[in-house]
């Protein structure tokens, strides 16, 4: 059957043209760098000169580096604040949008999501203008309310890191509002109706019915937020460069600065940067596995 043979030939050609280059590019640009970064983590290398194999030296340095712990501490502060605040705010907003019939709700649903499509650089610059010490929006509001308004939010050690928390919450909340709204819509109306007959208040309805039924979605939210907060360093990089005095130096930024930063007098330290990258890799994958175990996977049945 020449037809069949022809069809098989067509298939082979199609697959070869379509799958082969894209898959090869995926292996080269995504998988191979992952392997390469393991190799780099055992090197002393400035990116230009000779590569020197130094065994576990970089890993030993990692454990004696006080700035690693400091950076991880900053990550921890962000994690324990940003995750609960984001989830609570978006749960409340989602509940209000779903269960209260205000005329403006449909507009809010669209507006709240908007920060998610804004570019990272735009968000960083907008918030730099909010926090600026002399002509910032926040100080302007505080002055108008008679509450001071002379503080340099990003320039002071005490407030620089804390100032990043509202930014993160502002960025992420809209996404979870939509996620939670979709999940809330999936809850059968009959559950609410029987509860309303029993004279339950809005508040009780939220805490006794809605919240437990959303535990599965909330778990996923915790994991996503955790990954985003640990990986994200661009806001600090753009807004504070990790300063003042390392007050906003988070772990990914610390790694990035070794490789591409201008803080080391233009010197690039690819080996150690890759070692820190390996640590972040292990940390992220490890945390994800632990969280998967820690939170009961069995979602509640209606």
């Amino acid at each position: 059957m020449p037809m069949l043979k022809n069809a098989r030939l067509q298939k082979s050609i199609f697959l070869f043209i379509v799958v082969a280059p894209a898959f090869a590019a995926y292996v080269l640009f995504t998988l191979y760098p992952n392997a390469l970064s393991i190799y780099y983590s055992f090197l002393e290398w400035d990116g230009i000169g000779a590569k020197t194999f130094v065994g576990w030296d970089n890993y030993i340095r990692l454990f004696h580096d006080p700035f690693i712990l400091r950076a991880l501490g900053h990550n921890l502060i962000l994690l324990v604040t940003v995750i609960p605040i984001t989830l609570i705010i978006s749960l409340v907003l989602a509940d209000l949008l779903i269960n209260r019939a205000f005329a403006e709700n449909s507009f809010y649903k669209v507006l709240y999501f908007f920060p998610n499509v804004l570019s990272l650089v735009v968000i960083a610059l907008v918030w730099s203008f909010i926090y600026d010490g002399t002509f910032g929006l926040l100080n302007g509001i505080l002055r108008a309310l008679g509450l001071g308004g002379e503080h340099n939010w990003l320039g002071s050690k005490g407030t620089a890191l804390l100032s990043m928390i509202p930014l993160y919450v502002w960025c992420y909340a809209g996404f979870y509002v939509v996620i939670f709204m979709n999940a809330m819509r999936g809850i059968p109306k009959s559950l609410y109706e029987s509860a309303t007959l029993d004279g339950i208040t809005h508040m009780q309805r939220f805490s006794k019915i809605t919240l437990p039924l959303l535990s599965g979605v909330i778990r996923v939210g915790v994991i996503f937020l955790m990954l985003s907060v640990i990986k994200g360093f661009e806001y600090m990089f753009i807004m504070t460069q990790g300063g003042p005095g390392g007050a906003t130096d988070v772990i990914s930024l610390y790694m990035f600065n070794f490789a591409f930063g201008s803080l080391n007098l233009g010197q690039h330290i690819y080996g150690y940067a890759s070692t820190i990258g390996m640590m972040i890799f292990v940390l992220l994958v490890g945390l994800k596995l632990i969280l998967d175990k820690f939170f009961a996977k069995d979602s509640i049945e209606y």
Partner: peptide, 15 residues
Amino acid sequence: LFLPGINILVSQYTL
């Protein structure tokens, strides 16, 4: 989907 990607900034650049 399981690779965080943050660890390959350096190696992807050198590549």
